[in-house]
Design a protein around this nucleic acid. Sequence first.
DNA 1: AAGTCGGGGCA
DNA 2: TGCCCAGACTT
Length: 383
Amino acid sequence: MPSRLSPRSAQPLPTAAAADSSTSSLTSDFSVRLIAWQRKHGRHDLPWQNTRDPYRIWLSEIMLQQTQVSTVIPYYAKFLARFPDVATLAVAPVDDVMALWAGLGYYTRARNLHRCAQAVVEQHGGAFPASVAELAELPGIGRSTAAAIASFAFGARATILDGNVKRVLARVFGVEGFPGEKKVENAMWTLAESLLPSNASDDDVGAYTQGLMDLGATLCVRGKPDCLRCPFAADCVANVTGRQRELPAARPKKAVPTRRTWMLVLRDGNAVMLEKRPPSGIWGGLWSLPEAADEASLAARAREFGGDGGGVPQLSPLAPLTHVFTHFKLDIEPRLAELDRGVGALAALGDADTAWVALSDLDSFGVPAPVRKLLDSLQGSLI
DNA sequence: AAGTCGGGGCA
DNA sequence: TGCCCAGACTT
């Protein structure tokens, strides 16, 4: 099994007995083969490629954390149109950032995005720092994202270690154990560092980082890896031993609890009342429907919002919905309460954390995806 | 080390 | 339905 990329036709093929030496030479030219593969077969036309602008690279990397490329693309376009540079983002109201982020999930990313932009302006004169260490000091940028930005934007020799890379390393080098476990992850960081190209130009470094991502995203996928097209097929432990399905080891199973919540759809004509959630926790900083832990409590809240002598709004059930998070399942019991008063009369009830919002104006508020879905179906049922 | 944080893609 | 994804951060 040839382990060198360059001319090998004159070389006799190593025998199986020489497998140990081929492993070490794989380590030595892993980067050469990966870079060559990326240039020929990797992705080159993603919206955040073909630029050295650290702002654009940073924005894409934050959005891509735990989020797939196809999901990110429309959000990335919206953000760039609204916030073309870091200074524009830094001076924007955080609520505008949240509104554009709504639906992407992991909303702490949006808050940190805004905080990071302000830090870049205030602490770095509006220019992203070029070192991994300085980048990793910024909000929302950890070791892997710092390496991605530094290598793409500044040609730094630093390795990423994301889900793609963990899968590639586990398979090619036969790394056992769940990569989420600290010990395994540390070993992978060490391995990844050892594989970095030694004498590489800035473009090579970028191609290398992109190659790690591309290999994991296009060939070495979770379900059915396309080993026939893989440049490491002959050396890959998983491929050679038929263990693609076992590597990397799966996360240990754990029962996810179910929570239940009641949500109040307080409607006055075409408007509903939204409540701003606390900055941390589930859907932190987003606008959502008023909630209660049971129906009686929700009814009490409805009376509260109904005002004095305004009559007790009757609660009527809407179709329940279930929303699945990473670590628990949420059953939502929506209850509709109709008010028969003008919005103007109700405006006085609003404070900084409540707002009457027209169903047609939800776009300008950051609303969690399932709540948005609920309200959209409500709008569809209006006369 | 374990828990917290969404939403969507896909088998 | 279950699992995972261009992870970071808190406890």
